[in-house]
Design a protein around this nucleic acid. Structure first.
Lengths: 188, 188, 188, 188
DNA sequence: AATGAATGAGTATTCATTCAT
DNA sequence: TATGAATGAATACTCATTCAT
């Protein structure tokens, strides 16, 4: 029998491994066994640190949404005025989320869970509200909601390789939503 | 022993049952056993009609995306001009998808699969393109993309009970994206 | 992969193996694994044939109580009159149950389950009623109940190696309960 | 970190909690974790105070059998003569054991263990002998054994809700076993 | 053509116990 | 002395799939 090594950071490492695993293989492919092997802890350790797989998933996605909220608040920390806010949004989508592609991958795993389960839905709400609150400092309520909605859609289409929109196009769309440009009458 | 009954609609019934099951319990809760019981066919029938669970899921989601494409083409069939097109979009989100809530539930299950697997991603692409193509008849390319993106985001927020936007607000946002209104200078 | 052999008596063999296993190691030591190994079937076969371990235990104990009821009805089949009935009881305890010691061992496992769970309690009731009904043909109700009660106690004490009573002593006690002998005044 | 509190009664509290737990959920549902939670001691405390789960069970059942022996000796402490002894037995079954229903529930858990393991069997022996010894003071050996046997059976049938006998009927049966009444010739 | 039986890999979880602190 | 952390073996059960009939 192996001697018990005490390992204070283990719980955190398990959560990280779970998150990586979800990004790579989806929630469906994320089992106690797989996560345990990935971070080199024995199987029994999983249910010692977490009451069950659900608690693990919840903690993992909690960490994920916190990370996103941090990205948002970092991008908005020095923003002054609506023009800079639009730039922050574009950078969020085309730089931050792009750099950590997991943001895209993990979101849809989380949403699929959120559809059926309230505790995961809470995480989604918090994440969406974070975006709204940051926008609200620079836009009226209706515009802030509209922009937040657009971000959501852009992320989805980006995640699924379906967004041929460039960052320039996204910027223009966002500026329209924010009424930042005087627009020409549309050419039918 | 039961005599083998020929049952021409069986394959279709299985697909329908699978789709209901996914909506109710998620892909994770959708197994051969569960689907077979739901539509009253023997377990062996599942792998007789489908090479495996993946084929069944793919067929089920194929039916789902076709249904959505039908909703889109129905709404757009009599549309004339951009104003009516916007109305069609609003009705799609606030009436069609709302009436069949499964549209929301199933989308995120599909996206979660699509993130990791190309064949499901193809279905998503087709669905998104259908929206784009309908819009393209009434808007320039950039506006059509922007509107399609907005629809995506609005659907997500709606699915997850996070969209306090009314249909009026959505209509206004869509009209901004389409440059249908002369906009006031923004209130700082 | 091993070729599937169809094996029509398998379900019955599993039940028998479970019963032997309970007798040897107690319900606590009777797991899917252990029973499967004992009768040489793969683990997956256990939950194919039984919805769960409870169904298996219930079937096993059902077979056990039926066996006891058969012993009772065999012993009583040719009984004529109360004297012969008493003999039948003595032979039941000191021959039938003694021959198949499992009768003793299994009873207490069953009772422990019956205390907490109604479906097992039903089996116990049926078993006890079988004894009562056989006795009722030869004795008035009160005597039949009293004798049945005595049988129960004698079985327990016998099972737990605590009954120094000989069959002669048991016979005399039973005859007293049945009022078959004129009794002397007790010596204090 | 919590300072180690000395807690002299802890061992006793654990034993009590174990006994309650066995009564409620059976031996099968009684684990270190469950008992520890019930009496609010840390898990590590269980194997500190007891060498293993077996020692805990043995101590718990030891306490249980002592409790029964106390009930017996209390009931018999003032008994004078066989008539009063019979009354004591009836009160034991219909009052004492009835009041603390755990007596019934726990007995069969103990018997199931006793069937397979000698140390638990010893406890059963002591318990049964206690009854015998009390009876022996007022009856000849054979009657004492017979009465003790009857008590056992009556308890079982009572525990399993299968004893429609009233205390009056039990009293009459016991008096027959004790030869306290001149009996009528049996009605065939 | 159709299916009931079978199966091995995999799932989450519980458990008694050990041990470093 | 006392305990939180750790662990490997075991538990019941689910599953997609195969195959003989």
């Amino acid at each position: 029998m192996m001697v018990n090594q005490i390992d204070p950071g283990r719980r955190e490492r398990i959560i990280d491994a779970a998150l990586e695993c979800i990004a790579e293989r989806g929630v469906a492919g994320t089992s106690h066994r797989v996560v345990a092997k990935r971070c080199g802890v024995p199987l029994g350790s999983m249910t010692y640190h977490f009451t069950g797989i659900d608690e693990l998933l919840l903690e993992a996605f909690g960490r994920f949404t916190r990370r996103i909220r941090d990205m948002v608040s970092d991008r908005f920390s020095h923003v002054k005025g609506p023009d800079e806010a639009i730039e922050a949004v574009v950078e969020l989508i085309y730089e931050d989320f792009e750099t950590d592609r997991n943001v895209y991958l993990l979101s849809y795993e989380l949403y699929a869970l959120a559809v059926h389960r309230a505790d995961f839905r809470t995480l989604v709400h918090e994440m969406i509200e974070a975006g709204y609150n940051a926008l609200r400092l620079h836009f009226d309520e209706e515009s802030a909601r509209a922009i937040n909605t657009y971000i959501e859609g852009a992320s989805t289409h980006h995640a699924l390789d379906t967004m041929p929109q460039t960052s320039d196009q996204a910027r223009r769309a966002l500026r329209r939503l924010a009424c930042l440009d005087r627009l020409p009458a549309p050419a039918s």
